[in-house]
Every structure is written in C-alpha cells, then in structure tokens.
Computed example of a mutant assay.
Amino acid sequence: MIASYNTHVGDVLLLVVANDEGKKVTFERKENIARVYQEDTGETVGWNIFEAKSLLKSLTELSKNGEVKLSADDVEKLNTALEKSGFADKLTYDAQPKFVVAEIVEMVEHPDSDHLHICQVNVGLEENVQIVCGAPNASLGLKTVAALPGSMMPDGALIFPGELRGVPSFGMLCSARELELPNAPQVRGIMELSDDLTAGLAFEPTTMWHN
C-alpha cells in the first residue's frame, strides 16, 4: 500500500492498494471515505480519505505534500474508519522496506534488446527476484538499491510488478539521480554501494551512499 498526503485537493490522504493497469476507474463515497475501483472488475485500487488529519494525528506534523509512512496503529485506525463508513474491505499493514540494498546474483542479456539485462536479485526476501535493468554498469555481484513494488519514487512514480519487452520485472534498480540524492551524478547508471552491506537492509542514504 502506497500512502501520500495531498493538500491541493483538500485535507486528503490518498492510498493506492493495487495497480489500475491504466483501466477506467470510478468511485463510491460514504461519508469521508471514497473507494476507487476498476469499472470492469470492481477491484479496489485505492482510497481517498477526506479530512484525514482529524483521523490520523500523525499527519498534523507534515510540512509538505508527498508520500507518508503509516504505522500499524495508523492502519488500524483507518480500518476502523472504513468499517464505520460501511466498507467491508480491510487495509493491510506492510512493514517491508521498499528501498533496499540489492545484490545482482545472476545476469543474462535480454533476448529482445541490445541494452537490457535480466537480473536475478537478492533483496533479502526468501527467494531472489527478477528485475530487468538497462543500466550500463549493471554487473554480477554489484550491490545497489532496489525499489520494490509498493514504493513511490521521489518524482511520484509508483512501482508495481510489470514487464519490459515481454519479460517480468519485480521492481527496479535505482540510480542516485532517480532517488534525487544530493550531488547525484547526472549520468546513466545504477548506484554502486559497498560490498560490506547486506542485501535486504533498508536503504539509508546518509550512511550507505557517498558521492
């Protein structure tokens, strides 16, 4: 679940719980909560929580719009609000870090591209994940940063499982520029982290990356 706060349309907490896949969506509103869902399937893809600061006190400390990290207690309060408004859906708290240290453990060339690589990546989960990457510096054994599904990039882009030229990709490997880090090199290429870092650790730019 991706959460962001937006004052441009009022005191609203926006929750994305699934990829709408570019399909037409509509909504139903009950009291101060609107469920956003795909028209053809009825699948819930998001929620708009109006007058959000009155519901979650943690939001009162926000100084700008953008992504917010919800605690387990926040999610519990939101589920209570959904139930009171007459919705049967339940939100799931996800403690998994979304930007993590990643290690490329296998890499082959994409069969339908002259620059893409199909990487098997250790991100600290039970099994390695497959990420398609076009960075010229991608290499076997490289420690870098992966944005996992359910993450929001600094430019607002949402990361979901997808495909690149027909090959499944579970997230993306990131450059310092894409993460908008201070003094990020303005060149193509994913981040190169210390070999000493353990795959799966939450990425902390102040201690794990220096330029």
Rank of each mutant, 00 (worst) to 15 (best):
K23V: 02
F27R: 15
E39F: 04
F50W: 12
K69A: 09
L173T: 04
G46Q: 09
L142H: 01
T44K: 05
K90C: 03
M153W: 02
V132M: 13
H115Y: 13
V68A: 07
H117D: 01
G124L: 12
L201G: 04
E43F: 03
W209K: 02
P136C: 06
P205I: 01
V121M: 03
I118C: 12
Q186H: 11
S139I: 00
V105Q: 10
I131R: 11
K77D: 09
V17E: 10
E192Y: 00
Q120E: 09
V123E: 14
K98E: 06
S151L: 09
N128K: 13
P168R: 09
A202D: 03
E28G: 13
S63R: 15
G134C: 00
P111R: 13
A102G: 11
V16K: 14
D94K: 14
Q130D: 00
G189N: 12
T7K: 13
L55V: 11
A202W: 08
M152W: 00
L148Q: 08
V9T: 12
G10S: 13
E31A: 14
L70P: 14
Q130K: 05
G22Y: 12
Q38N: 08
N137W: 02
I131K: 07
A199P: 01
I33S: 09
T60S: 13
L56I: 06
P136Q: 08
N137I: 01
F27A: 15
L148M: 10
E43V: 02
Q38L: 12
P136I: 05
V16R: 14
T144S: 07
L62Y: 07
E83R: 12
M152V: 00
D195H: 09
D40H: 03
L82Y: 12
I2G: 02
L179Q: 13
L158A: 04
G86P: 14
R188T: 03
E21R: 06
V145H: 08
A157P: 00
P182E: 11
I104M: 09
E204L: 05
S151Q: 10
